[in-house]
Design a protein around this nucleic acid. Structure first.
Lengths: 205, 205
DNA sequence: TAGATTGTTAATCGATTAACAATC
DNA sequence: TAGATTGTTAATCGATTAACAATC
């Protein structure tokens, strides 16, 4: 048990390590070193070792880390050694793409519902899901104890819907709307805004 | 003129400031303070002032910042006071969603081409674009002097296509494939991987 | 054993915050 | 003018790197 507060920057890197380990594992490799893993993800070996050692002694001197073992440990730490039900709010193009994305389930997530308030979209089939009426959203969130949501609606509606999600018990929001959200301290938000990400690179051009 | 190297973390925050200012501007506000802007984006007033002051004295004591003026300056700094042609590689669900996204053009970007290597997709119309043969990609990149690309292909093909993009002169890649890319120092990559972003939040649940 | 690589400490480097004189 | 808020300095805080003893 580790009582120390782990810095957010370290937590943010762990999924990247896990993703790289998954790829090594897929290609049949069983063992890696902090040097090799660091080369893969563009981070120094010292930092990799420091990050991992926050949670225990998962490596062996001389031989490095067992990939399956380290993956298990990282999954435990990140709490993705289970399947989280995730909802999508907004059945536009982005909502569609996420609903059909095959990459969630082996990384700890299942899209279990998708909502919209547009009558022409409600009832529509997307993959194995049917678009549900947004008016029922908070009720369904509570019934199914949903903690994780992805928000793919216009910026103008995003804060209001966020307030509903939070009120219904959602604690993690992946926000695709191009706006900063206001949430209580115990609710986490991650932002995905392609224009913002592009603007982080043009400075260097 | 500022010869000092501006830290990457500051550059990464500027698009967020710009986005918040745009929203204030849209709602008719003409002036803001570091305190108010900071409240909007969840960053301390001191940090906002420090960040902005790296580039000049854009505010006025007593009254704060003129929103249109500060937006102009941030756009100049980020080089989004112009329109960048951007290509999409991969015409799957995500490529579709990005090709039809309306949020680029007023933030400095125009999607000008989309490529795929799947014969059933080549020739397909998406919005105002037609899916082009990936075999022509490097040629078209050179012809049109493309510097920015979005990558929405499976992880297995991502590094190979990245090498082609780099070889053809692309300097900024927004990568939607769930894999870390290897690029030269003068090429920037931003990562968008919804599963990774979700995994950054489950730790806290 | 000899070589390799971890976990950890101490040193360095960088980023954030607090405080306030300057000034609109 | 009086109040508000900037730009900037110094202090604090936190993160990264380098180095190496421990050990597989």
């Amino acid at each position: 048990m580790n009582a120390e507060k782990i810095p957010d920057v370290i937590i943010a890197r762990l999924p990247v390590y896990l993703r790289a380990l998954q790829r090594m594992s897929d290609s049949g490799v069983k063992t890696t070193s902090s040097k090799e893993l660091g080369d893969h993800v563009g981070i120094s070996a010292a930092q990799i070792r420091k990050d991992i050692s926050q949670f225990g002694e998962f490596g062996k001197q001389g031989t490095g880390y067992s990939i399956p073992y380290l993956m298990d440990k990282l999954r435990e730490i990140l709490k993705v050694d289970r399947l989280w039900d995730v909802i999508i709010v907004g059945a536009g193009d982005m909502g569609h793409a996420l609903a059909r994305y095959q990459g969630f389930v082996n990384r700890g997530f299942v899209v279990s519902m998708i909502f919209d308030n547009d009558p022409t979209k409600i009832g529509q089939q997307i993959g194995s899901l049917v678009v549900e009426n947004a008016r029922l959203m908070t009720e369904k969130i509570r019934q199914n104890n949903i903690k994780v949501a992805m928000l793919t609606i216009p910026a103008a509606a995003a804060q209001e819907v966020t307030d509903q999600l939070v009120e219904a018990g959602v604690k993690a929001i992946l926000n695709y709307a191009p706006i900063s959200l206001n949430v209580p301290d115990d609710v986490k938000v991650q932002y995905i805004d392609p224009a913002t990400h592009l603007q982080r690179m043009t400075y260097y051009l």
